Simulated scan of single mutants.
Amino acid sequence: MSPDHNSVRHDRDGVASAALALLDEVGLADLSMRRIAGRLDVQPSALYWHFQSKQELLAVLADRITAGIPRDDADVLTIARSIRDALFAYRDGAELVLSTYALRLGSSYAQTALEEALGGLPDAQDRATAILHFVLGHSTLVQQRMHADSHGAANTGDEIDVTAGLDLVFDLGVRALAGEVSAAASPPRDRV
């Protein structure tokens, strides 16, 4: 006989799994506690047995999204690409992780991985922060554009396509922030 279906679905892990699946279906704007409860066939108040607030649940989802980032002997560009790919793996994943990061919720797994990749640089923490900000911003911009394109809502006129040269622009930004790109040789300006 199989285990009671409800007992498997309603623990903390089950609620988070249902919420992550629902995020992919409806997006962050429509991911409500009521909708998650409906998916689990429980009252919304039942979710608060496992999570004190929706923000706590979103922090757990952000941690799940970034959990697969490599940390062992990976270079900073590989880690930054892994963070970006993890954000792109879920609908509105970049926006969700950005919002929880901005509120200082969840773990700092992504930043720690970047710091470790930057090795013994004296400003590794600051560089890791700058790179993470770039990755989150770049990924959010691209993900929103891709979402708009999928719904035919993007203006396709003469405007700049933010998805053109995606990897080139991304790699350049990460390398520059990591200190791997030198400034173009130009004569110093005299201060007037």
Results as ranks from 00 to 15, higher is better:
A59C: 06
T163N: 00
L118K: 01
T112K: 12
A86P: 02
T112R: 13
P188I: 03
H151C: 02
K54R: 14
A80Y: 05
L57F: 04
G120W: 11
A184Q: 07
F88E: 03
A184Y: 08
T156V: 11
V76M: 02
S32H: 10
H138Q: 05
W49F: 07
A37Y: 08
T140S: 08
A128N: 12
R81N: 08
T78A: 06
D171Q: 08
A86G: 07
R35M: 03
R35N: 09
N155L: 05
D13H: 07
T163R: 03
S150F: 04
L40T: 06
V162N: 01
I36P: 09
G27W: 14
P122E: 06
S32G: 00
Q55D: 13
S150A: 11
D13C: 00
I36C: 07
L77F: 07
R175D: 06
R12Q: 14
D63H: 11
L172T: 14
R39N: 07
R9M: 08
D123Y: 11
R175L: 13
P70M: 01
T163I: 02
G38W: 04
I69R: 09
G179H: 09
R12V: 01
A59N: 09
A110N: 10
L172W: 15
S139C: 00
I36N: 09
A102K: 15
R64P: 02
D63N: 13
R191H: 11
D167I: 02
H50K: 15
V26L: 04
I131M: 03
I83A: 09
Q125A: 13
D171N: 12
D24K: 04
T129K: 15
R127W: 12
L58V: 01
V8K: 12
